[in-house]
């Protein structure tokens, strides 16, 4: 589950220590924008020590590396990839499939060197330019390592030469495009952050909107945002009850050798069963298939 992925500034011991306690589904130890240029070296070492000895609970652990257009990204990867707790890297400013391939090759080299199964480290791609959004499907399908694609917020808005509004009009098309590309490629679409950290009502509204578009979850910049996003993404009692009924009826029909099922007088076909299973996975009542 990737309902919430919380950014933790890579040079902040307090947040790196306590981040998992806020119960997000995933953590992003950030070596990029949250770290000042002069502290890139110390942040990398601090994150390395946390990956070696830190506590992360049940969170999916990822590190946001610096962009491939900087002098830092190879050192970032070399520092973090060897640790078994690391499940993936979040790559900023991915504009095309070639960027994914460059990172893929570097990851393979490091994994091979350290005796790690090649392909273990996933890539979470941040699409922060108009070009990146345009190439979304190519990026998402550029490597089996790609686990998710994420639209940029601030950077993308700047590249579009507009500004961020409370309605998110400027990001509307990019978000829809990203969901289509991700689903077509079989990876997760994860939304950008909601920057107004004290606007709970605004966060809830935006989360409801992106859930309806088809997003799996949202990037998070403040721990207080986590319960609100989980609340929106968690299935309701009614949805769970209905899903349980559908899955049980489908199972029973399959055992009898029947394809079509009827639940509460309505015909239920395969897409409906799949959606019901997805609901139960989200409710923690079914393992991911």
């Amino acid at each position: 589950m990737r309902r919430t992925m919380l950014y933790l500034p890579g040079n902040n011991p307090n947040m790196l220590t306590r981040g998992y306690l806020f119960g997000p589904d995933g953590l992003i130890l950030d070596l990029e924008d949250a770290v000042a240029m002069a502290e890139k070296d110390t942040a990398r070492i601090l994150v390395q020590h946390f990956l070696k000895q830190g506590e992360f609970g049940k969170c999916e652990v990822t590190v946001r590396i610096n962009g491939v257009d900087t002098e830092y990204w190879k050192d970032d990867l070399a520092a973090v990839v060897p640790f078994p707790v690391l499940q993936g890297v979040r790559a900023p400013k991915v504009d095309d499939a070639n960027t994914v391939k460059i990172i893929d090759e570097e990851l393979s080299m490091i994994e091979d060197k350290h005796g790690i199964p090649v392909g273990r480290t996933k890539i979470f791609c941040l699409l922060e330019t108009a070009k990146g959004i345009w190439n979304a499907y190519d990026i998402a399908s550029a490597s089996p390592r790609v686990a998710a694609i994420i639209p940029g917020g601030e950077d993308l808005t700047a590249d579009l030469k507009t500004s961020r509004s409370s309605e998110g009009t400027e990001l509307d098309w990019a978000r829809r495009m990203l969901v289509f590309a991700a689903r077509a490629a079989g990876v997760d679409p994860i939304d950008t952050v909601f920057p107004r950290v004290t606007d709970d009502a605004g966060l809830r509204k935006e989360t409801e909107f992106i859930k309806q578009l088809g997003f799996e979850g949202k990037s998070v910049i403040h721990p207080n945002q986590i319960p609100i996003i989980h609340d929106v993404f968690n299935p309701t009692e009614k949805e769970i009850e209905k899903a349980l009924k559908i899955v049980a009826a489908a199972k029973e029909a399959a055992e009898r050798g029947q394809g079509a099922v009827s639940v509460d007088g309505r015909m239920v076909d395969i897409p409906v069963v799949k959606r019901a299973e997805h609901t139960l996975v989200k409710a923690g009542l079914l393992e991911v298939k």
């Binding site: 011991p13 220590t17 070296d41 110390t42 070492i45 601090l46 390395q48 020590h49 946390f50 070696k52 000895q53 830190g54």
Partner: peptide, 17 residues
């Protein structure tokens, strides 16, 4: 109030610098 992990990381960083 640095934990062991942090202390180790800061010493390593300072020495590397």
């Amino acid at each position: 109030g640095a934990l062991d992990i942090v202390l180790g990381a800061r010493v390593e960083a300072a020495v590397k610098r």
